[in-house]
Every structure is written in structure tokens, then in C-alpha cells.
């Protein structure tokens, strides 16, 4: 409940934050008024899709992080662990390098999404039908290492310094200059992912007791794994496709919220979805307020904020044990 209010407040704040020196009331009025004026244009074509994307991506990252941690029974798990983000990044980098990114409007996110789908396919193939959490983590680490190396190779061999520059900036993650076409491209895929992840709650609860006990309680672990991996691939793949690599949300948000839901992995799912949206909105507002003229990258800010929060949590945990 508190999280819903926080997300709504931050969403509104995000709408009224920008380079144009306009008052908050005036901006919101322009959003609702259909007068075709420049402010309405700014609100509807720039700020609204940006805020909506922040919510969508935050929900995807938070939800995926909670599902991954629940499925692997490890508080250090995050969506990137199974190589989804790095495969998506490789797809995007290849598109930028080959010029495919210029072929049509959404060619870049499309290539990133393709990369994510291929990556998860490889993971599922490597881990096999009965593969447990351990083999999945190892397969994810191997895939992440391979895709990161291939991405570096592309950068390494890049004949064009501008393409390399563009690739580096894209990999930092950002919500600047996104439009409703990005929203419409990502939304259906993300929504499928959210639906899959929303169906994992009971299975994740049972997995609290380990794989053997969960299986004996009638839960189909192969189906659960498919839902988790498919859901994470779709939602995080689409998120990476439209916004680049944004880390730490999927790791920190479930970690921070877990005590508030009594440790329950199923109740953590909706809480982390809202928490992720709140964190991403806040970070995207900060990006615009701190250095307004410098196009500070969201992924950079997230890591700058997320890593100290995480270190602080570790410090507190150390005191408890």
C-alpha cells in the first residue's frame, strides 16, 4: 500500500521534472489539456513515455530479481545471473556495429530482444530438463562470460570510433529520448513475462523447503523453472532492449523489501515489482536533477547509488551475525 503511494508520487514527480523551466501544475495541466501546444507535446511525447518506461522497467527488474532469488534460494541472485542482460547487450552491440540498428526505428531493441531470447534458449539447453539451481547458475555464469567477451571483441574490432562510443553509451543504460514506440514495443513482451512470473508464487513458497520437498508437495519444478526463466527473459530482455543495461535494481530491491514481507517469497513478488518501479523512477528523476545538461546515464547512477546501499546492508548484516 505504502509502495503504491510512493510509486504514484514518484511517477507524478517524474512527469514534472525536466529541462523546460515550467511549473508543476502547469505541466500536469498541459498533459491533460489537449491544445496541441509545445508543452503538451513535451509532456505527452517525452516525459510521459519516459515515466511509463521507468515504471515498466522497474517492475520488470524488481519482479525478476525477486523471482530469481526465490527460485535459486539465494539472496545474491539477480536477473543478470542467467545471462539475459548480457545476451541482450550483445544483440544490441552487434546491431549497432553492423549498422542493422539503423535499418528501422526499433531495430536496436529488436536485436537486443533476439539476443535475450537466444541466451535463455542456450541456458535451458545447457541446464537440461532436470537441471537444478546449481547447474543453472553455472550455465548462467558461463553464458555471461561468453557474451561479455564477444561484446568486448566487437568493441575491440570496431573500425569506427563513433560506433564504439555509441555502444559504450548504450550499455550504460538510459531512459532519455525514448518515445511511445518504445513503450508499445516493450509492453506486450514485458506483460507476458510479468504474467509468467506472477504464476510462480506458490512454487517459490514451496521451494523455501528445497527442491526435493517442493517436488514431493506436488509442484512441477520443470514447469516452475520454465515460468521463471521465460518470465525473466521476456521482461528483462525487453527492459534491456529499450533502456540498455541497468543493474542493481533486481539485486537490491528484493533484498531491502524481504524483511517487510516476513521473508515470504510469494509476497515479495508484488512488493519488489512496486519497489523496483519506485527506485527506477527516483533514479531517473535524480539523473535529470543532478546534472541537467550532461545526459547522466541511468545505469551509472543506479550502480553509484545501488552499490553503496548494498555495502551498507552487508555492513549491517555483519553486525547481526
Amino acid at each position: 500500500m505504502g509502495l503504491t503511494i510512493l510509486v504514484t508520487a514518484l511517477f507524478t514527480l517524474s512527469l514534472v521534472t525536466g529541462v523546460a523551466p515550467v511549473g508543476a501544475g502547469e505541466s500536469l495541466a498541459a498533459l491533460l489539456r489537449d491544445d496541441g501546444g509545445p508543452l503538451t507535446m513535451v509532456m505527452r511525447e517525452i516525459r510521459l513515455p519516459r515515466a511509463i518506461l521507468a515504471v515498466m522497467i522497474g517492475v520488470s527488474l524488481g519482479l525478476s530479481g525477486a523471482a530469481m532469488q526465490g527460485f535459486l534460494r539465494n539472496p545474491l541472485a539477480e536477473p543478470g545471473l542467467i545471462g539475459v542482460s548480457s545476451s541482450a547487450a550483445l544483440g544490441a552491440v552487434l546491431a549497432l556495429q553492423t549498422g542493422f540498428a539503423m535499418a528501422f526505428t526499433l531495430a536496436l531493441p529488436f536485436a537486443a530482444l533476439l539476443g535475450a531470447v537466444l541466451g535463455v534458449g542456450v541456458i535451458l539447453f545447457l541446464a537440461g530438463p532436470g537441471g537444478g539451481a546449481f547447474i543453472l547458475i553455472l550455465a548462467g555464469i558461463a553464458l555471461s562470460a561468453l557474451t561479455a567477451a564477444l561484446t568486448s571483441l566487437v568493441l575491440n574490432l570496431s573500425p569506427n570510433p563513433f560506433a564504439a562510443n555509441e555502444i559504450v553509451f548504450w550499455m550504460m543504460g538510459s531512459l532519455a529520448d525514448r518515445s511511445f514506440s518504445h513503450v508499445w514495443m516493450a509492453l506486450p513482451i514485458m506483460a507476458l513475462g510479468w504474467l509468467a512470473l506472477a504464476r510462480t508464487g506458490r512454487g517459490l513458497e514451496a521451494l523455501t523447503l528445497g527442491e526435493d520437498a517442493a517436488a514431493s508437495m506436488g509442484f512441477d519444478l520443470a514447469r516452475l523453472r520454465l515460468l521463471v526463466l521465460g518470465g525473466v527473459a521476456a521482461s528483462v530482455g525487453a527492459a534491456t532492449a529499450v533502456a540498455g543495461a541497468i543493474g542493481f535494481v533486481g539485486l537490491v530491491v528484493p533484498h531491502v523489501l524481504r524483511p517487510l514481507v516476513g521473508g515470504s517469497p510469494s509476497r515479495l513478488l508484488p512488493a519488489s515489482a512496486l519497489g523496483g518501479a519506485a527506485l527506477l523512477l527516483a533514479a531517473d528523476i535524480a539523473v535529470r536533477l543532478v546534472l541537467p545538461g550532461r545526459d547522466l546515464k541511468l545505469g551509472v547512477v543506479m550502480a553509484l547509488v545501488g552499490a553503496p546501499i548494498f555495502l551498507h546492508l552487508l555492513w549491517r548484516m555483519r553486525g547481526q551475525t
Binding site: R73, L207, T208, G210, G262, G263, S264
Partner: peptide, 8 residues
């Protein structure tokens, strides 16, 4: 014995 999370 496995209890992955701090549930009651």
C-alpha cells in the same frame, strides 16, 4: 534440512 528464507 533447508529453510531458505526468514519466514515464521
Amino acid at each position: 534440512p533447508e529453510i531458505a528464507w526468514p519466514v515464521t
